[in-house]
């Protein structure tokens, strides 16, 4: 039960979240996004085992951003009609202005909540496999992304490796931290060049293993769609509907 969000089929989750977001884009009021944001958090509380500390850390930039939207919308707002609800430094803020500002910033939060939900409860490899199995993504692209994705941890090492290679070959490390930072630029191209070579070799390896890129029917790791997906999707829709319904009254 606690795992329900993690167990959801990644493609289904992806689609349902996309639907939620697109729908949210059509509702321009403070309440709909706020309710969705709360609902999403509630969902995660009940059906996931994510690391909340990390979640909070990732949420911070979005909070700042949402605040940015808030005040710029107030300052640069075009529509300044409506009753004045608030006065700061002799600057009048009207009802409409506040509504717009809140709508925009809550929307940012709702989007962030949804996307963090997806990112924190989805295994990337499974997502790509599921895209290939459920959404008919071309295996050529799917496996290429998988291969590329495996390079992520390697890229970090690669960066260290190139530094080490330069050091081994007798390049002196500059004392000055700024010069050192500036010298990093010299490492970036070799790093990309290394990536290009890795890509080429992986492609050779894939071909040598008989990969032709045609659609495949047999998978070793099968990603399924099941009852759990139906239930969870229904919950998402319910939250969304609740958020939308509130504006109808």
């Amino acid at each position: 039960m606690k795992q329900a969000l993690h167990k959801m089929n990644p493609s289904v989750k992806f689609l349902i979240i996309t639907v939620c977001m697109l729908t949210l884009a059509f509702f321009f009021n403070p309440w709909t996004p706020l309710i969705c944001w709360g609902g999403v958090i509630l969902l995660q509380l009940c059906f996931s085992t994510i690391d909340w500390k990390k979640w909070l850390l990732f949420m911070i930039p979005f909070l700042i951003m949402s605040f940015g939207y808030f005040w710029t919308t107030i300052v640069f707002a075009e529509d300044r009609t409506g009753a004045v609800v608030w006065s700061v430094f002799q600057y009048d803020i009207t009802r409409t202005q506040l509504d717009h500002a809140l709508s925009l910033s809550f929307r940012v939060l709702a989007f962030a909540g949804l996307s963090l939900l997806f990112a924190f409860t989805t295994d990337p490899t499974k997502f790509i496999l599921s895209l290939m199995q459920q959404l008919k993504l071309s295996p050529k692209i799917a496996y290429s992304i998988l291969v590329g994705y495996q390079f992520l941890p390697v890229m970090k090492e690669e960066f260290v490796h190139i530094q080490q290679a330069h050091r081994l070959r007798g390049a002196v490390r500059d004392r000055n931290a700024i010069v050192r930072l500036w010298n990093v630029r010299r490492l970036l191209l070799p790093m990309l060049a290394g990536a290009v070579r890795k890509a080429e070799r992986s492609a050779f390896a894939m071909e040598a293993r008989g990969f032709t890129g045609e659609k495949r029917v047999e998978f070793y790791q099968v990603v399924r769609v099941g009852k759990n997906d139906v239930v969870m999707s229904a919950l998402f829709i319910f939250i969304l509907a609740a958020g939308c319904a509130i504006t109808l009254k």
Partner: peptide, 20 residues
């Protein structure tokens, strides 16, 4: 669309996409 692509071009593209 990808039929004319060489595999190594697809992988290169995917890798760059990941990096970027």
């Amino acid at each position: 669309m990808l039929a004319k692509w060489k595999l190594k071009e697809v992988v290169l593209m995917a890798l760059f996409s990941v990096v970027f």
